[in-house]
Simulated scan of single mutants.
Amino acid sequence: MNFASDNVWGACPQVMDALQRCNADAERSYGGDRWTEHAETLISEVFEREVEAYLVTTGSAANALSLSAITPPYGAVLCHPASHIMVDECGAPELLTGGAKLVPVEGEGGKILPGGVAETVAALDHPPHSVKASSVSLTQSTEIGTLYQPGEIAALSELAHGHGLKVHMDGARLANAVAALGLAPAEITWKVGVDVLSFGFTKNGALAAEAVVFFDPALAEDFIYRRKRAGHLWSKGRFLAAQAVGLLENDVWLANARHANAMAARLADGLKAVPGVRLSSPVEANELFPIIPDALHRRLQAAGAVYHKWPGEDAGPGEVMIRLVTSFATAQADVDAFVSLAREGASSGAA
């Protein structure tokens, strides 16, 4: 019953098979191999247009390098206060942009709103004393598992572009968003104004692989140097590409995401029926944030359930908020066991 993260599991079988096939032959180094070429072709096919795609190993690198291409050292990145770039990347965006500032923009449901962006841009309009608003970063799906609808992204992009800002999307869980919305990836990225995407594979069944995807090739000028200087150009880059190939061929990435989403929905439905348990936000992808009695929390952990206690203002006295994340490898039996354990704890008085 491990719901700590979608990072806790290893690689899916199709990725491991691709790695084994990739390992069978000698190939050119530094991305000049057939696997990298194939991965780049597949990424363009996913987004229904020619893109510039660059493989890296971590989500932090993908985000920070993406932002470095669209944000100058004296610039500002507007983002949600709970975004990964703001709270979980140890200053990597500031480092790789050469000193750009991350500026939080309040919103609702884990999402930033056009009004907040407009107010922040106006507040920064004091050249040369303020940093220059240069980019907006959106997270899809968000850090609380909610989803930006295409119209919401389009409105934010139109506003950003109207002020000369570029739009970055942190798509560490883009697969879950695509699967949940039932839309083509293009419909929630470049067609609604996203300029550069951090396309996540690791949380969806890869070992360690992400892609920086530029929808405007002009923005990728000199990116080969940025990636190399940051230490993310692998000499054996085909092993990054093989992971992407294993996921993108035959739409494995979407099948994995659909399974993760389905397990989250099943978990949410089960917990809704447990007395004393409530959900702090809608469950739209593969994360859920229940608020539960502290006694039930201690009982679940004593029984071996693995998850994170989460900070949240919605929890009242004697309650805690927890985060549960499902993945491509989450077993239905574990979901049902967790719900059963929660139900037993509530009925026995622990709740």
Rank of each mutant, 00 (worst) to 15 (best):
K236G: 14
L240N: 10
A255H: 05
E249M: 10
G246C: 03
W253R: 09
V252T: 05
A265T: 15
Q243F: 00
A242T: 00
F239P: 00
N261C: 14
G237S: 15
R258E: 10
M263I: 12
A255T: 14
N250I: 11
R238D: 01
L247A: 09
R258P: 12
G237A: 15
A244H: 01
A260I: 11
L240H: 04
A244W: 07
V245F: 03
V245A: 02
L248N: 14
G246H: 01
A242F: 05
M263D: 02
A242K: 01
S235T: 15
L254P: 11
A241I: 04
E249N: 10
D251V: 08
V245C: 05
A255L: 14
A255F: 11
S235P: 08
H259C: 07
W253M: 12
R258L: 10
W253D: 08
N261D: 04
R238I: 02
A262R: 14
A264R: 07
A241G: 02
N250E: 15
A241M: 07
K236T: 08
D251Y: 04
A242G: 02
L240S: 04
H259G: 09
L240M: 01
A242Q: 01
V252I: 14
D251F: 04
F239N: 00
G246I: 01
Q243T: 00
L247Q: 15
A244T: 12
W253K: 10
A242C: 03
A244V: 14
A242I: 02
G246N: 01
R258W: 06
N256T: 11
G237V: 01
R238L: 04
M263K: 08
L254D: 11
R238G: 11
A260M: 03
A265R: 13
A260S: 13
N261Y: 11
R238T: 01
N261Q: 01
M263P: 05
L248C: 08
H259K: 15
A255N: 08
A262W: 08
H259A: 10
L254V: 15
S235V: 09
L247T: 09
N256E: 08
H259I: 10
A244M: 12
N261P: 00
R258S: 12
A264G: 06
L254H: 06
A262D: 13
V245P: 03
L254N: 08
D251W: 13
A262T: 14
L247D: 06
A255E: 14
A255D: 10
